[in-house]
């Protein structure tokens, strides 16, 4: 039941194949199709959206998604919205609790390893932490994040490239509670950056299996969004033609449609969306 989620990938049903939606109204531009979502990764050059994944403790769901997005070459950062990092302990009443932004994944790993290696290997915590410490160094709290503050000190993190400026275009939360916390925090921060950000919620249960499948769902959404955003840049790009109709539709207004389509493909992950401000 509890194996390193990375090793379990083979057991997990692959996300449904993404069909191509040929759009006859669209003018095909040479080289515009260089970001095919079906390949599962985005080409190095070209426009990329920046992503931020959020869950309660910045351990399981957000980190799984962080890994997936970063592996697909998308700029990604991740956070937790809880007051503390909470991990299961020996009993349900004795969770292991750590402060955000302080203790590293490595330190947590070592501590749990010393505490009870069998238990934490069996419930998947040690493998999870071992994965996390390859992604970035410590769990971060969303509310403590200062958007727009450069993140050059995170250059060892996976998915770092593109997130240097400390802003993202898309936030994806994994639980309604986190979605609410993110919206509330953005209200509190007051939108001083005047920068729009699409905030999504995808409800994923907090266990290793669901995190893994949900990570695939998040990646699917992210690739879709990125594709649409990249296309917008192409269409309105150097050619500069001033057409009208569907092909003029930009990325932002397509978001509800993309999410609607995504929701039909992933009916088990109820999704929410809003456009908020940094």
């Amino acid at each position: 039941m509890s194996v390193d989620p990375r090793r379990r990938v083979a057991l997990i049903p692959p996300p449904p194949p993404i069909e191509a939606h040929p759009d006859s109204t669209k003018m095909e531009l040479v080289g515009s199709n260089n970001t095919k979502p079906s390949t599962g990764a985005v080409a190095d050059e070209g426009f990329k959206l920046r992503f931020c994944t959020v869950c309660a403790s910045n351990q399981n769901r957000s980190m799984e998604a962080h890994l997936r997005l970063a592996s697909a070459n998308l700029p990604t950062i991740s956070f937790g919205t809880g007051s503390l990092v909470r991990l299961p302990g020996p009993t349900i009443k004795e969770p292991n609790v750590y402060a955000f932004n302080g203790i590293t994944y490595n330190a947590i790993h070592n501590e749990l390893q010393a505490q009870n290696p069998q238990l934490y290997a069996a419930n998947g915590l040690l493998p999870m932490l071992a994965r996390n410490l390859t992604i970035k160094s410590y769990p971060e709290r969303f509310q403590d994040w200062v958007p727009g503050k450069p993140r050059l000190d995170h250059n060892g993190d996976q998915g770092f490239h593109g997130t240097e400026a400390g802003v993202v275009d898309v936030i994806i939360t994994c639980e309604e509670r986190c979605f609410d916390a993110v919206l509330e925090d953005l209200h509190n921060k007051g939108g001083r950056l005047n920068r729009p950000v699409h905030v999504f919620n995808i409800d994923i249960k907090d266990n290793h299996e669901e995190a893994s499948v949900g990570g695939g769902a998040i990646l699917d959404l992210a690739l879709r969004l990125n594709e649409a955003a990249a296309k917008e840049r192409e269409i309105h790009g150097a050619a500069g033609w001033d057409g009208s109709g569907k092909s003029r539709e930009g990325f932002d207004e397509k978001v509800p449609e993309i999410l609607g389509e995504w929701q039909e493909r992933w009916p088990n992950y109820p999704a929410l969306w809003t456009l908020a401000w940094f």
């Binding site: 979605f179 919206l183 449609e257 609607g260 929701q263 999704a271 929410l272 969306w273 809003t274």
Partner: peptide
């Protein structure tokens, strides 16, 4: 449609937040 559902949910939720 799936799109209009997304939109209504988004507006309701944002207003509530």
């Amino acid at each position: 449609t799936s799109k209009s559902k997304v939109m209504m949910k988004a507006m309701e939720r944002t207003g509530r937040a």
